[in-house]
Amino acid sequence: MVEQRQDFGDEFRLNKPRYDQSTYKGRLRHFMDIVDPRMLLVSDAKLKSSIQLLDDYKEGKLPANVSNSKLWEAQKIKQAIVHPDTGKKIFMPLRMSGYVPFGTITVVGLLLPNPTTAGVIFWQALNQTHNAGVNFANRNASTPVSNTDVAVSYVAATGTAGGVAVLLHNAVTSPWFKKFAKRDRRLAKMIPFIAVAAANQVNVLCMRSSELANGVDVHEENGRVVGQSRSCAQTAVVSTMLTRALLPAPILLLPPLILSSMERTALWRNFPAVRFPLHVGVCMSAFAIALPMTIALFPQTLKVETSYCEPEIQLATREEFLYYSRGM
């Protein structure tokens, strides 16, 4: 029997979220922990001691003077570094805690002024490569995805991002478009967002096409799986696509607006050396703030009335509500 912690922190629950996932505030705090870049600085010794602390808790060997806060910190460290299915360390640039620091490089590149066609293609391809790496490194390894599906998704998303970006870039820089000069500048600043958002939709559809065809597992509150529902899969995929469409909006639309305002300041005009550092700082800040706020919009586990599911699922349970994973 696991001994209860004697402190006033949130009661520790092994492998469970610390905050209430039924509220936006709880999900926001949960994802702020997940993308916390400070986890990149955790030493191997600290990781090892955190894993040992959790193992001791699981086996009921933990001293009573270890606080709940200490256990939550240990679990945060382990989940930030170690894959839950394979038990292996995730490569640092592909960890969720590294998504903002390493992803900022591509965001800065995507928003560089006056890009060439080659530059547009390079930064869009690099962005999709990083996204694909993060998705693969943090995948659900208990439900394998074939290498073919991964390759098709990557090629389709990269092709979509590059194709849309180049098409719009060539359009707004063409002589034909010059009569729309005032719109030209605004549309040019929107190109990275439009291309990334389009690629995200293609990526989700490619990676999760099997779910749309076969359904997602639905389970009772106690975890018992009662079947696979295609109607729930459609809801899960649509909500994920909506999240993926909204995610790049503040990251790729706000910095150009902020930087345009800065261009009119004396600091920007008189000190050219500060322009690039300001560019990087604005992009990183927008990324860091928007990422947890956007992915927290929807719960990861969705609740559905059993009557909404297929007839065979309704016959397999007496529960009024069932649950399923939305995915990322």
Rank of each mutant, 00 (worst) to 15 (best):
E3W: 11
Q4F: 14
D7Y: 04
D7W: 08
F8K: 07
F8W: 07
D10R: 09
E11G: 10
R13L: 03
R13A: 02
N15A: 14
R18H: 13
Y24C: 04
L41R: 12
V42C: 05
K48A: 06
Q52K: 12
D55K: 14
K58N: 04
A64C: 07
V66S: 12
V66F: 10
V66P: 09
N68V: 04
K70E: 10
K70C: 07
A74N: 09
K78N: 13
K78W: 06
K78I: 02
K78Y: 15
A80S: 02
I81A: 11
P84A: 05
P84Q: 00
K89R: 07
I90R: 12
F91A: 11
V100N: 12
F102T: 05
I105S: 00
T106G: 07
T106D: 15
N114D: 15
P115I: 01
F122T: 00
W123H: 06
W123S: 03
Q124G: 05
T129L: 13
A132M: 13
V134R: 03
N135L: 13
N138P: 05
R139I: 00
S142D: 13
P144Y: 12
V145Q: 11
N147K: 08
T148Y: 11
D149G: 09
D149E: 10
S153I: 00
A157E: 12
T158P: 03
T160Y: 10
A161M: 09
V164A: 08
A165K: 03
V166M: 05
L168A: 10
H169V: 03
H169R: 12
V172I: 12
T173F: 12
S174I: 01
P175N: 13
F177V: 02
K178R: 14
F180Y: 15
A181W: 11
A181P: 02
K182N: 15
R185G: 08
R185P: 10
R185F: 11
R186F: 12
R186M: 10
A197P: 15
A197H: 14
A198T: 03
A198Q: 04
A199F: 04
Q201N: 14
Q201F: 15
Q201V: 08
V202E: 03
N203G: 01
N203P: 06
V204T: 13
L205F: 02
R208M: 01
S210A: 05
S210E: 11
V216H: 03
E220W: 03
E221C: 10
V226R: 04
R230L: 11
S231Y: 03
A233T: 02
A233R: 05
Q234R: 05
Q234N: 13
V238P: 01
S239W: 09
T243I: 06
L246I: 08
L246A: 14
L246Y: 14
L247G: 07
P248I: 01
A249I: 02
I258V: 01
I258H: 01
L259D: 01
A266H: 06
L267E: 01
W268D: 07
P272C: 10
R275E: 00
L278H: 05
L278D: 09
L278Q: 08
C283N: 14
S285C: 06
A286W: 01
F287W: 06
I289M: 04
L291A: 14
I295R: 00
A296N: 05
P299Q: 04
T301V: 13
T301Y: 05
K303H: 15
V304D: 08
T306K: 06
E310N: 15
L315V: 03
L315R: 14
A316K: 07
E320T: 04
L322C: 07
L322V: 08
Y323M: 00
R326K: 10
M328N: 09
